[in-house]
Simulated assay, not measured.
Amino acid sequence: MDVASNQLVTVFGGSGFIGRHLVRALANKGYRIRVAVRRPDLALFLQPIGNVGQIHPVQANLRYPDSVARAIEGADAVVNLTGILVESGKQSFEAVQEKGALAVAQAVARAGITRFVQMSAIGADADSPSAYARSKAAGEAAALSEVPTAVVARPSVVFGPEDAFFNRFATLARFSPVLPMVGDGSTRFQPVFVGDVAQAITRAVQGRATPGATYELGGPEVKTFREVLEFVLAVTERRRLIVPLPLGVARVQAAVLETLNAISFGVMPQALLLTRDQVTLLQRDNVVSDEAVAQGRTLAGLGIQAETIEAVVPSYLEHYRRMGQYDTGKYA
């Protein structure tokens, strides 16, 4: 019998974008998976991914330590994927990505579990002017302080069918005559396929990653902000003007959009929302460091051949074309 079939992995945030791909990857390896979420009823869609009884959603709220402890009871490994891109009400960066990570790490430490993976992001920095980046760094520090054998996963921008990156720009291109570009478009990204991120975390759960190490996960290509927008327009076969937004103008616009989102109780379409913290993040490159490459703390170091955006993105952006998936035009 496969050893993994006797092992239980608790995944916090397992119903999210990366989570659903990780649950599938773990299920394919034979693990039993406990998906810890605030609303288990909204995670039931994950159960058909595995065999009967293999995937089980449970209720857990990072603000309540007892629920966190129950969620990891009897687990052999724990993965914390919980995170947010935009703050809303009690869901602040500090509450979710700093205090939440600490709550999970403390529970893992008390349970004596040594296989623990903490999701972070490239750009995590305790001294960053971005609150998002600071909270990610604090989450990393909490994980490694409480569980020295923890593995930290720092992906660049993650892409896949449900992503909030390529889909966002394709949505804007569908109804807007222009695509706004924060800054001069020179900020660099290293988009990484969600399936590759899931495989990297799975290998960490299997014990194939260096304990206590931080892995930076990026795809095989580095693209500037402008190149990303040009790629989206090429795939969706739309002609749009790319308009640079000076940082000062972008911050003012972001402040207005944040206010509108607040007074509309968060119902503003995510494709239209831009925050001042995101403007700050867009001033810094989001690529794998030379140090991580040299030390093998990358996808390649885990034996994973990264997918290109050209191989994946057109398959889910085609419906943004004028004739959708029935458009006879081909992306080349």
Rank of each mutant, 00 (worst) to 15 (best):
V58Y: 12
E98P: 06
P65H: 04
Q59R: 08
A143H: 11
Q91D: 15
Y132V: 13
K99V: 03
I113W: 02
A77M: 05
K136E: 07
L85H: 13
E87L: 02
G112T: 07
R115W: 10
D127E: 06
N61T: 06
S145H: 10
G139F: 10
F116A: 12
K90R: 10
V78G: 12
I49M: 08
H56P: 04
G100H: 02
H56L: 13
A105H: 00
A103Y: 03
D76C: 06
A105L: 07
A142D: 01
D76T: 08
M119N: 01
G83W: 04
A137P: 01
G112V: 08
A75E: 03
V58E: 06
V86C: 05
E140T: 09
A69K: 15
P129H: 09
V86Y: 01
A124V: 13
D76M: 05
N80P: 08
F116T: 06
A121M: 05
P65F: 12
A126Q: 13
Y64F: 09
V117I: 04
I72S: 02
S120Y: 04
A126P: 15
N61A: 05
T82H: 03
A60M: 07
V79D: 10
G83Q: 12
G83F: 07
V79S: 02
E73W: 12
Q97A: 14
G89I: 12
R110Q: 11
V52N: 02
N80V: 03
I49T: 14
P48E: 15
I49A: 12
A142P: 03
A150S: 14
A75N: 09
S67Y: 00
A126S: 14
E73N: 10
D127T: 09
L62N: 00
L85A: 15
V96F: 05
A138H: 06
R110Y: 04
A138P: 00
V52G: 07
L85I: 14
D66M: 12
L102M: 13
Y64T: 05
D125F: 12
K90A: 08
A131Y: 09
A133C: 11
P129R: 03
V68P: 00
I55C: 06
T114H: 12
E98V: 10
T82N: 13
P148S: 01
Q59K: 05
A71C: 00
Q97C: 10
G100F: 05
P48W: 08
G123Y: 09
F116S: 04
L85P: 06
A60R: 03
P48R: 08
V117R: 09
A138E: 10
A133K: 03
P129L: 14
H56S: 09
A141V: 11
L85D: 13
A75H: 11
H56F: 14
E146Q: 09
T82W: 02
V151D: 12
A107I: 01
E146F: 01
V117W: 11
L62K: 04
